[in-house]
Simulated scan of single mutants.
Amino acid sequence: MKFGFDIDDTLINLREHAFQIYNRKLNKNISLDVFNALTTMGIHEAFGLTREEGGKLWTSLRDDIYYSDCAPFPHAREILHELVKQGHEVYYITARAKEHTERTRDWLVQNGFPVVEGHFYCGMSDTEKVHIIEALKLDYYFDDKPNVLETLSQLPVKAYVKDRCYNQHLDLPRITSWDQLWEELKL
């Protein structure tokens, strides 16, 4: 079978990692309770920033956010390794900007994710992401982003949402922790 995975906030806890970096850089001490109560993907509002100010801050800190010690969600790496061990194909499909392609792939490898040549896609819009998912003829796809998941309903792929505070409105099967994947898929 073919499995596709988004990276940010699906396999790795990127928004929380960025939230902690914002706290340090802005000399704030905003609690994770505030983070967990956010109903949007953006974290800027928790710091009293406008969308534009938040975008500028994210851009200025992007290397720290993307390429430092962002933690994978528990069991994410192990599950992907087990899928590969069982003979399944694992694909990574991320909408990170194209200029981050090589560094993102290298970061995944350095952090123990199983990355096979030709199974990594980066640098596309959400619409293009859906086209890649369709072209690959994935059996399963996992993402956190409502805009992507809502457009997959017309495809034969079985979509799962990685449970996050901003995607509670989605009526799709949920992965709240990666160790539940075996039970969900009955592999």
Rank of each mutant, 00 (worst) to 15 (best):
131 H>M: 14
89 E>L: 13
62 R>C: 02
77 R>F: 00
113 F>G: 02
120 F>V: 02
160 Y>D: 02
108 L>S: 09
89 E>V: 11
151 T>Y: 03
31 S>F: 06
163 D>P: 00
185 L>W: 07
59 T>N: 13
90 V>D: 09
52 E>G: 01
84 V>W: 03
154 Q>R: 14
155 L>H: 07
39 T>Q: 13
128 E>L: 09
14 L>N: 10
172 L>R: 05
94 T>P: 01
110 Q>L: 10
20 Q>L: 13
53 E>W: 01
177 S>T: 12
158 K>V: 15
7 I>A: 04
170 L>Y: 01
96 R>W: 02
187 L>E: 03
153 S>Y: 12
37 A>D: 15
14 L>E: 12
63 D>C: 01
51 R>I: 11
106 D>F: 08
171 D>C: 08
152 L>R: 04
83 L>S: 02
81 H>T: 02
70 C>K: 02
148 V>F: 04
55 G>E: 03
28 K>T: 08
2 K>S: 11
43 I>E: 00
82 E>P: 00
42 G>C: 00
170 L>W: 02
177 S>F: 05
123 G>P: 03
32 L>V: 08
83 L>C: 09
2 K>P: 09
140 Y>R: 04
119 H>Q: 12
35 F>D: 01
157 V>C: 07
70 C>G: 08
1 M>A: 14
69 D>P: 00
93 I>V: 12
32 L>I: 14
1 M>N: 13
106 D>T: 14
59 T>M: 10
11 L>M: 06
168 Q>T: 14
111 N>L: 08
92 Y>L: 07
174 R>I: 02
35 F>C: 05
95 A>N: 11
129 K>P: 01
24 R>M: 08
